[in-house]
Structures are given as structure tokens and as C-alpha cells.
């Protein structure tokens, strides 16, 4: 047991170092090339173009990448824990689709787009409305029915995307482009208040989730067994469901729909360090942050001066990694 804790510690330290490296790479890569060695010098003098580029453009994006990547990955890990299904993520539950629909409605209705808070607000509202729908449709007498919840989530997701396509067929080409770009996701967020909100709520979500590590571990044995071990599974699952929805809602509302993070990262972390939620939650958060910082760096640089939608990068990278890992580990791969 003590040996296990040491492994966890080493694992978390390695992830922190990797995150630091990813941040340094992301800071130095881009149209204005800045070598890592020069960073301290630039931060010391404070009055160069490079300083402005770093603090006004690159650093806020990195903070947002850490927040969004961490939140989505954490949310995926939590949802997989309460559903005991390795294929669940914010996407599968329709939460992201609902958020996208909320944003599409605002754009098509032409509500003042120059207010920075309007889009995130409607994205967040869309996510929560979807959550409420999925949740209330799947409540049964004996508590929540996990399987029906999953199916209802998938269906709600379909309905949301159909509704969005319906809206798109009614609206102008300009609006369509905006919606499509938003749906593909981007970390280009000019409003620093939103970035701060996203970052601190992601960190708060992480801290809250760690208090649920023990119940999540007990849930690995199934809901009935977890109750036999004294866990109030009904309340725990409800709270965790709300927590992961809020995390997703915030991430989607500032950065658009970025898929695969919540699915792939927790899986990789499980494969490396195991399924104990005491290390898995923090590990998933850090892993998601590293993944999104690197993905965003690629998105900014691959076809510079243009920018790729980050959803394209995460979709490619995530999907490929997932296929490789799954086909290698074969039937040995199990979650719970």
C-alpha cells in the first residue's frame, strides 16, 4: 500500500513536469518565435513586443487550455465512474450538444453578439437544460436508471443537433459560419474575466471532486455494493452528475465543443496508474490540461497565420490514440 502511494506521488509529479514543459513549449511556439531560454529575460524587462505577445495572447490561452482541458477530462472521469461505463463522456450525455444548441439559438436570433457574456451564458444554460431533461426523463422509482439515462442522453444529443441543423437551414451564411466555427471549438477568448471564471471554477471542481474519491471507488463495485459499504449512492450520484455538468457547461460555453478529451484522457490515465479515483481525478485533470495545451499549440502553428479549430486536433489525436491503445491492450482492457 505504501508503495502504491509512492507510485501515485511520482505519477503526479511527472504529470506536473509534463504540464510545465507543455506550457513552455506553448509559450515559445508561434509566429513570434521566443526560445524558452529567453523567457526569463523577457519577463524581467517587461516592455518588449514579446512581453505583450506572451502576457496578452499566449498566456491567457494557456490558462484557458488548462481550465477547459482539465474540466472536460475530469468531467469524463467522474461520469465514467458514476455510470460504470468507459464510453461515457460529456459528449455522449448530450450536455455538449445542448450547449451548442443554446449558442446556435442566440446567434440565429441575432441577440447582441458584442456582449461577451451572452454566448457563454446561453451555452451554459443549454448544457444545464439538457442535464435537467436527461435527468428528469430517466428518474425511476428506485432511483436513477443508469442505462436509460445513457440512452436518453444520446437521444437528446441527436435531437439537439437536429434542432441546430434546422436553425442553420433557416439562417444566413454568416451565421452558419459562426455556428460551425463555434461548434468546432476555439481557445481564442478575448475576455479575461471569462478566462478567470473558467480557470477558478475548474480548480474548484477538481477540489470538490477529490472529496468524492472514496464514494467513487466504492461505486466501482456497483451501486448496491456501495450502499452495503455505507455510501449514500443516490445523493452521491446526483451531486457528481451536477458537478460534471457544471464543469462541462463552463468549458463548452467559453471554448465551444471540444470532443474526445473527456473520453481519451481518463482512459490513458487509467491504463497507466489504475482505477483508484484518489489518483485518477487529479491525474485526469492534469492529463487533460497537458493534452489541450499541446493541441492548442498545434492548432495555432500548423497552418499559421491561420488557425485550425482545436476540435479538429483533439478529434484526430484523441481518436488515433484511443484506437491504438484499445487495439494493443485488446481484451485485457477493462474499466470499473
Amino acid at each position: 500500500m505504501q508503495k502504491k502511494y509512492l507510485q501515485w506521488l511520482i505519477f503526479i509529479v511527472v504529470l506536473l513536469v509534463l504540464l510545465l514543459v507543455a506550457i513552455l513549449v506553448s509559450l515559445s511556439a508561434g509566429e513570434v518565435k521566443i526560445t524558452a531560454g529567453k523567457l526569463t529575460e523577457i519577463f524581467a524587462t517587461k516592455d518588449s513586443i514579446e512581453y505583450t505577445v506572451l502576457t496578452r495572447i499566449r498566456f491567457p490561452r494557456i490558462v484557458l487550455a488548462v481550465a477547459v482541458g482539465g474540466a472536460l477530462s475530469l468531467s469524463g472521469a467522474i461520469l465514467q465512474g458514476i455510470y460504470r461505463n468507459p464510453l461515457v463522456e460529456p459528449y455522449t450525455l448530450g450536455i455538449s450538444g445542448g450547449a451548442a444548441l443554446g449558442v446556435a439559438i442566440v446567434m440565429v436570433a441575432g441577440i447582441q453578439l458584442h456582449n461577451y457574456f451572452i454566448l457563454p451564458f446561453f451555452g451554459f444554460a443549454g448544457a444545464l437544460v439538457t442535464l435537467f431533461l436527461v435527468y428528469s426523463l430517466s428518474v425511476r422509482r428506485a432511483g436513477l436508471s443508469m442505462n436509460s439515462m445513457l440512452l436518453i442522453g444520446v437521444m437528446v444529443s441527436f435531437v439537439a443537433s437536429s434542432a441546430m441543423m434546422f436553425l442553420m437551414s433557416l439562417t444566413t451564411a454568416d451565421n452558419i459560419q459562426n455556428i460551425v466555427f463555434w461548434v468546432m471549438g476555439s481557445l481564442d477568448e478575448p475576455n479575461s474575466v471569462l478566462i478567470k471564471i473558467a480557470f477558478w471554477s475548474a480548480v474548484a471542481g477538481l477540489i470538490i471532486s477529490i472529496f468524492f474519491a472514496r464514494p467513487l471507488n466504492a461505486l466501482r463495485l456497483g451501486e448496491v455494493k456501495a450502499r452495503h459499504l455505507g455510501i449514500d449512492t443516490g445523493t452521491t450520484i446526483k451531486l457528481l452528475f451536477v458537478l460534471s455538468s457544471v464543469l462541462t457547461g463552463i468549458a463548452v460555453s467559453v471554448a465551444g465543443v471540444i470532443g474526445f478529451v473527456g473520453l481519451v484522457i481518463p482512459h490513458l490515465i487509467r491504463l497507466i496508474i489504475g482505477n483508484d479515483y484518489r489518483v485518477l481525478l487529479l491525474g485526469s485533470f492534469l492529463g487533460g490540461a497537458i493534452f489541450l495545451v499541446l493541441s492548442d499549440t498545434l492548432a495555432r502553428t500548423v497552418i499559421a497565420p491561420n488557425e485550425l479549430p482545436i476540435g479538429v486536433i483533439t478529434g484526430f489525436a484523441g481518436g488515433l490514440v484511443f484506437i491504438v491503445v484499445l487495439s494493443r491492450s485488446g481484451s485485457k482492457y477493462k474499466m470499473k
Binding site: 500500500m1 472514496r214 466501482r220 456497483g222 482505477n275
Partner: peptide, 22 residues
């Protein structure tokens, strides 16, 4: 219910009702 965990990890779960909330 067999989860993907070691025997020791599984057995020690019996201590959950005795462990403090945090």
C-alpha cells in the same frame, strides 16, 4: 462484483464505513 483491481484493494474497501468523510 469483480472490478479491475487487486485483491488487497478489493478487501480494504470493507474499511470504507469506518473511514472519515475527508
Amino acid at each position: 462484483e469483480v472490478g479491475n483491481m487487486t485483491v488487497e484493494e478489493y478487501v480494504i474497501m470493507g474499511r470504507i464505513p469506518y473511514q472519515k468523510q475527508f
